[in-house]
Amino acid sequence: MKFPFFNFNKTQAPEFWKRYSEHFKSKEQRTIKETRFIVFDTETTGFDFKEDRILCIGATAIKDNKILIKDGLEVYLHQSVFKADTVKIHGILKSEKVKKVEEIEALIQFLDYIKDSVLVAHHAGFDIGIINRALKRHNLGKLKNDVLDTGILFKRSKHIVNIIDPNKKYTLDEIAQELKITPKDRHTAAGDAFITGLAFLKILPKLNKDGNMKYKDLFINPLNY
């Protein structure tokens, strides 16, 4: 299956990509309160950017310290790549009865949904990477959004003396436990997105003890994790 826009260049960019890019033209100063954050998670067939495919994207929006359930996305993808050994983690079978869409359709939905919001994910590098890879397969550019990683934010929120190993990578389960979030629906994209969202809500006030935190302060990485 080949689409005419597979030979991607700026003038021939498909409508949805133009829509998406349009959002980033504004250079307005952002505030944390008014920023829309999209907390998301992907379930994939594995951890290899090249080989593996996205099975599901789950996302929920946060604005003004509130998770807005209505403003969510949960999309399941048709994929020809199927690995039996990861089924036990994500639980998505090849012939699962949920409504599934083609990869490109999922990407369109995702881009329309996220707009220029800040993307938040746990170990965001992986989720961003696998989506960028998918975009590339469809001859599209990379995601333009600002990205936050709850793994890093969580480390920043811990007092420096409590960090035994600065290189430690906290799993979602570990931070959920420390932040006393009951893990439920783990390993469904939406469930993990929700847990990540709660973690994000709980971490923010810890980073913003004096209440003066600015939007750009979210992205500093003092310890270079």
């Binding site: 969510g72 949960e74 399941y76 409504k99 629906d185 939406a190 469930g191 997105a193």
Partner: peptide, 10 residues
């Protein structure tokens, strides 16, 4: 759309 989070809230 399937909505896992709304289901959990429910």
């Amino acid at each position: 759309m399937k909505n896992t989070i709304a289901e959990r809230i429910a």
